[in-house]
Amino acid sequence: MGDQNTSMVQKYRNDFLKEVEANVEEGAWVKMCMQCGVCAGSCPLGPAWEHPPQEIFMMIRAGRREEVLKSESMWMCTSCYNCIVRCPRELPITHIMHGLANYAHRLGLAPKMNPTRRFAKIFWDNIAKSGRVNELELSVRLYFMDGFKAGVLKGLAMKDIGIGMMKTGRLNPFGLFAHKGCKDIKGIHKMLKKAYEIEDRKKGFVA
């Protein structure tokens, strides 16, 4: 993992493009982008991105490895699929954005305090534990991730919604103590372990 983080990349050569192809979900599509900019113009969050998808793809080809992997940009994607629908070259842009984010995270290069990354992590740990989301625990962890005081304030601000959800049976008020997970939790854990192993081997994360 160490040398992957510090590898020297030549500019406008195929090194980083090849790395992305090999390790990022749908990464093989990056070379097919024709730089039309339709994705950048289609993304509802576009103006908020430092580097819209078009630029990210060009940066990959330009060999700007650190800049891409440390970027906050791909974490901005909300999976609205606007860009995928419009890209004339039919790139699965949304998937590539998540693929890049995931790869950066696995390399430990993703911005530590990026809220999307933190939420994703909480969400994954939550669902992986029992095979089913525990809404109350998820909300509590999310609200309190920035400390006790911030958590209380956020919880109060959201209380009406929480009560509403409880009334309609969407939130188990006793979830922290009694969460109904999947039947074969052990089986799920085994399956996930195997999946990690396969992916790690494929992407070169095996120690």
């Binding site: 195929n14 493009l17 090849k18 097919m32 730089q35 060009m58 080809r61």
Partner: peptide, 14 residues
């Protein structure tokens, strides 16, 4: 033809 070259890994830069 352009697409074919991209598939082969030719880098295009504006």
């Amino acid at each position: 033809f352009y697409r074919s070259a991209q598939r082969k890994g030719v880098i295009f830069t504006k």
